[in-house]
Design a binder for these strands. Sequence first.
DNA 1: CGAAAATTTGACATGACTCAACTGGAGTGG
DNA 2: CCACTCCAGTTGAGTCATGTCAAATTTTCG
Lengths: 191, 191
Amino acid sequence: MYPLLRKNLQRHVSLDESEYALIESKMVPRSVARDEHILEPGKICRHTYFIDQGFLRLYHINIKGYEKNTLFAREEWWVSDLYSYHAQKPGTYFLQALEDTNILQLSKKDMETLLERIPRMERFWRILHINAFVAQQERVMHMISKTAEDRYLEFIEKYPDAELRISQRHIASYLGITPEFLSKMKSRLKS
Amino acid sequence: MYPLLRKNLQRHVSLDESEYALIESKMVPRSVARDEHILEPGKICRHTYFIDQGFLRLYHINIKGYEKNTLFAREEWWVSDLYSYHAQKPGTYFLQALEDTNILQLSKKDMETLLERIPRMERFWRILHINAFVAQQERVMHMISKTAEDRYLEFIEKYPDAELRISQRHIASYLGITPEFLSKMKSRLKS
DNA sequence: CGAAAATTTGACATGACTCAACTGGAGTGG
DNA sequence: CCACTCCAGTTGAGTCATGTCAAATTTTCG
């Protein structure tokens, strides 16, 4: 049914057919138009999302009123406002589609069911969150020890298609710099 | 045996006596002198550590040769070079005691055993890593959207005892600024 | 007490931001 | 097919936040 989802699950755990079927039965497909918001601050994040096709950004608005991208998510990524989802309390993030996107959503309640009925799912989520934590930790490390230029170069190396799919101002916001400064950096790099 | 460990486990899962006993049997106490290193880059992180008493820092050395603190860990925290521990590949971090410290260490192999014999442990680690991820994500958010001064004020509010236990240059490194600049900021804040 | 390390202070340098003007597509409607 | 608007991106001048380096001072600890 959802080959990309299977592939993703198989990365970390092996499941039998009936387990796959159960998981797939809980995943609700949904299509989201470009620019549409899936999540807004103050609301409780009731689902976690698996991206089958497309591109999302998780962002917040800082004290000065600027949008700041916390995280991009592409095909085969899971995304949600994890605090809000886990605690079922109002969240702080926006989640928005940057392209027309197809997601599979899993409610908190169905997640609990899956965790009860398929114990290996605990393992899957544990590993997923370990990886997510490691990635965030690395990003913190880069923020505190690298210059904006290094961070940019690393970003385009790590996500080679990013410049095609994400506008420059979103990349700048992700890197923690202004779009103007990114533009200047790029022209400096070219020469 | 280890009341703090029990308290920590109870935060997220409920276990029976025999399960506690099994867990405690795998935790190996170890004391670490101030300034001693538990972990160094290039080595495989073979244990995860629970801090019973004391204070550690996880840090790395950046391209310019400066130490950069990625994370502080105090009593009741679990810490390791998570990537290295999980993948059992050479890591990139130093882990060092900032005070005389008592830790309980759990080897990767014993961890696997615990996960097999106490399925609820998967849940425990999943939740722990969700929380860790959320905390790191928040830190990234602060790095990209707040000034150094705001980050400092937030830091001392969040860790009121930090200034007593951690030297200023370590705090500066954690915040991503130089010790000199932190010093200037503090004198500005006083007036 | 004395040496080494941590912190403070100051002068100067630079990375990164702000604001405003300009350029150059990508739609949209006539 | 043109004129128009609307963004995103570029460029430049001036400014502010933070870094660098070196010297002075204080604290820590053997």
